[in-house]
Amino acid sequence: MKQVKNSGKPFGIELAFTSENVEKDFQNAIKARATEFESLTQKPWGQKVGYLLDNNDFLIEICSPMKSE
């Protein structure tokens, strides 16, 4: 696979993954050489969300599941 040159901006694609343990999975991704793009934050609706860039500069979202009411 051809590497995309790092321009400092995310590529035009976002992949999102839900996790029951967002903090652990976020740190595991960083240990696996992902780069933190936006740190984990708690959204007003209660969801935890963080963003990473993979080795091809694809934007990866790791978030907790949305709670249904």
Rank of each mutant, 00 (worst) to 15 (best):
K5G: 00
K5T: 10
K5M: 02
K5C: 00
K5L: 07
N6A: 10
N6I: 00
S7I: 08
G8E: 05
G8I: 05
G8P: 00
G8M: 09
K9C: 00
K9L: 11
P10L: 03
F11L: 11
F11C: 10
G12N: 13
I13S: 07
I13V: 13
I13F: 10
I13A: 11
E14P: 00
L15H: 04
A16R: 08
F17T: 05
F17C: 00
F17D: 02
T18C: 05
S19Y: 09
S19W: 05
E20D: 14
N21Y: 03
N21F: 01
N21M: 01
V22G: 03
V22R: 01
V22Q: 02
E23L: 11
K24A: 09
K24M: 08
K24Y: 04
Q27F: 04
Q27M: 13
N28M: 12
A29N: 09
A29D: 04
I30F: 01
I30W: 03
I30V: 14
I30L: 15
K31C: 07
K31A: 12
K31R: 09
R33H: 15
R33W: 14
A34P: 03
A34S: 09
T35M: 03
T35D: 10
T35F: 03
T35L: 04
E36K: 14
E36P: 11
F37I: 05
E38V: 09
E38F: 11
E38K: 14
E38S: 13
S39I: 04
S39R: 15
S39Y: 03
S39A: 14
L40R: 11
T41A: 10
Q42S: 14
K43D: 08
K43M: 15
P44L: 00
P44C: 01
W45Y: 12
W45T: 00
W45F: 10
W45A: 02
G46M: 07
G46F: 07
K48N: 09
K48F: 08
V49K: 07
G50K: 08
G50V: 02
G50L: 02
Y51G: 02
Y51Q: 05
Y51K: 13
Y51F: 15
L52M: 03
L52N: 03
L52C: 05
L52G: 06
L52E: 02
L52F: 06
L53H: 08
L53F: 08
D54T: 10
N55H: 12
N55F: 11
D57Y: 13
L59E: 13
E61F: 03
I62L: 14
C63G: 01
S64F: 06
P65V: 12
P65G: 01
M66T: 09
M66P: 08
